[in-house]
Design a protein around this nucleic acid. Structure first.
Lengths: 336, 336
DNA sequence: CTGTTAGCGCGTTCAA
DNA sequence: TTGAACGCGCTAACAG
């Protein structure tokens, strides 16, 4: 039997105040009326002993932990970070607490995180992106209330929030076309990743709808980080493939592309127009500020959390829809 | 009494396998040898019933939750995010799990986060920066093993990891001076914030040691984000205060400063040299790549977590020291 | 090697 | 109104 020194429980409080533990419990939870004198005695005892209720014991009894598990593909990604910020803010003044973890873009670690959180009895779970197959997500949803961002899982539609990436990419590409560009490079996200595929699709659609010939050699592959985008565009430049604009599937890759242009002495937007996707907080402060597709990540986080809180409290709730919008800043200009 | 439908406990497993609950417990935890036939029966029963152990009940007994509370001033800040990444990676293949929260740069929310984590019985706590006074931190440390990054708390020295910001700023400023610059703007961090004050101090020391006259009007105030830095430098430019270099107290403010210069048609580094602080992952990919003071944030996260894991396991451990180094990239050049 | 028993700290009936 | 007693799911002595 371990010692548990220094842990003061409702028993000591009860003894100190000269009442039973149930009375103490009632006062803590406001479950029933308690005579004023006893209430005061108990409150004095709690203060004196420095009583701290044990959440685990409480959870064991009630079955509710007042915590919400949040798993992001990657906490570090500025994109998810902003969503998390929204989630945190929404929960700040509620009794619920978010417990956030990374899935590290890996099925293994993501499912480990899921298991751990369920073991810890979170009352609900929020997945910010997910590499897990639909079936697994459905199974998880049967064990704990689940909300998913960035994907629509069959059977869980009303708890999924996904944005129209095809449309966002369409807007970005059309903007460039309207500016007169016809040779538009697309820096793709990782192959097979849904958002990346959708954005590629939006790019192609915009070309097709505006009778701009599709040139496969202008589609280059990245992985949503700067370095590979930098390299891919450098290769293209070295190969002297002509183009006048670049649409990168996210802002980080836009930064990589921008550097490749910079190294070759090409100016943005004078020589090449550049569009990103995501609108990271930092993208408004690049030089020049980046034209990009804005995702209302903070508001999404807020909405996600609000919905989640409703769900765990059995309140009716519906996830709102969010639009992707093009933010025109200074990295694009008409083809002269 | 709530229903707890669907929750299968060791009792059902024991019944199904025809053994006692302690035998089941022993098999789960490997506490003692169990006859092979019983073990197999139990394992079959667990699988069949889909048994999931309840961590809370376990924690209630053992007093160890196998979780580590991590509180960052701000999860969203790319700076802390990289430290968190290190922490997560270090714990990835251990039985311990980090539970991360934001303090939101506020005493109120930070102490709330601390309380919540202690209530949840985390085995130890890691503070990534802290706005709490020394006394409070000492009190926390008396309740739970505590490690602090970014500050040295009296009495807790061996569990604190802080970098020499004065020296880092000194290096940055000296670099500029060696390049021939004498009119060096310093974009300060928020007044009163320790890191900000230290960096200011390092800047002044470098000037003094190299006989560069100190011009107070070149010290402008920011708050570690882009916008105020942008504005402050714009004011300075409008006032036609002459300078040839800028040392910003962090990379985000360097981006703001860079934009102010860009808007006035000043090129970096041709017209003005620019140095940052932190070396955010994105700073290597700005155009031009930023010269900045590198903080080994990821490795720090790793070290912090490793130390923490040692501490909770009563293993001897010592926090290593880390150096700040100047990374010279392409945003600085000799004064012509 | 295995089962019985006594808690961990708390919420919640049921009588009084 | 209040207290006694039970149980949440599990671990850890203690016998055997």
């Amino acid at each position: 039997m371990q010692v548990n020194r220094g842990t003061v429980t409702i028993h000591e409080v009860a003894r100190e105040a000269g009442v039973s533990i149930s009375t103490v419990s009632r006062i803590i939870n406001g479950t029933a009326y308690v005579a004023d004198d006893k209430r005061q005695a108990v409150e004095r005892a709690m203060l004196k002993l420095g009583f701290r209720p044990n959440y685990l014991a409480k959870t064991l009894m009630t079955g509710r932990s007042m915590s919400i598990g949040v798993i992001a593909e990657d906490i570090v990604s500025p994109y998810y970070a902003d969503v998390i910020r929204g989630v945190e803010h929404a929960m700040l003044d509620t009794p619920y607490q978010p417990i956030v973890n990374s899935g590290h873009w890996s099925r293994k670690y993501e499912s480990r995180a899921v298991e751990t959180l369920i073991y810890r009895k979170v009352d609900a779970m929020l997945l910010l992106g997910s590499t897990l197959p639909d079936g697994t997500l459905q199974e998880i949803a049967s064990r704990v209330p689940l909300v998913v961002f960035g994907r629509t899982v069959p059977g869980l539609e009303e708890h999924c929030l996904a944005l129209d990436n095809v449309h966002g990419a369409y807007l970005a590409t059309r903007h460039l076309i309207e500016l007169g560009h016809r040779n538009i490079v697309h820096v793709r996200g990782p192959q097979g990743q849904q958002d990346a595929e959708d954005r590629l699709h939006g790019y192609r659609t915009a070309l097709a709808e505006n009778d701009v010939p599709h040139r496969p050699e202008l589609e280059i592959l990245g992985d949503f980080t700067e370095q590979p985008a930098y390299q891919a565009l450098t290769h293209l430049l070295d190969a002297r493939v002509p183009f006048t604009a670049v649409f990168a599937a996210n802002d980080q890759m836009a930064a990589g592309a921008r550097l490749a242009l910079h190294r070759k002495g090409l100016r943005v937007p004078e020589d090449v127009s550049l569009v990103g996707f995501d609108d990271l907080p930092s993208s408004a402060f690049t030089s020049p500020p980046l034209t990009t597709v804005h995702q209302p990540t903070y508001r999404i986080g807020l909405a996600l959390a609000t919905h989640l809180l409703n769900v765990v409290q059995d309140l009716p709730s519906q996830l709102p829809a969010f639009d992707l919008t093009l933010v025109v800043r200074e990295s694009t200009r008409p083809l002269r």
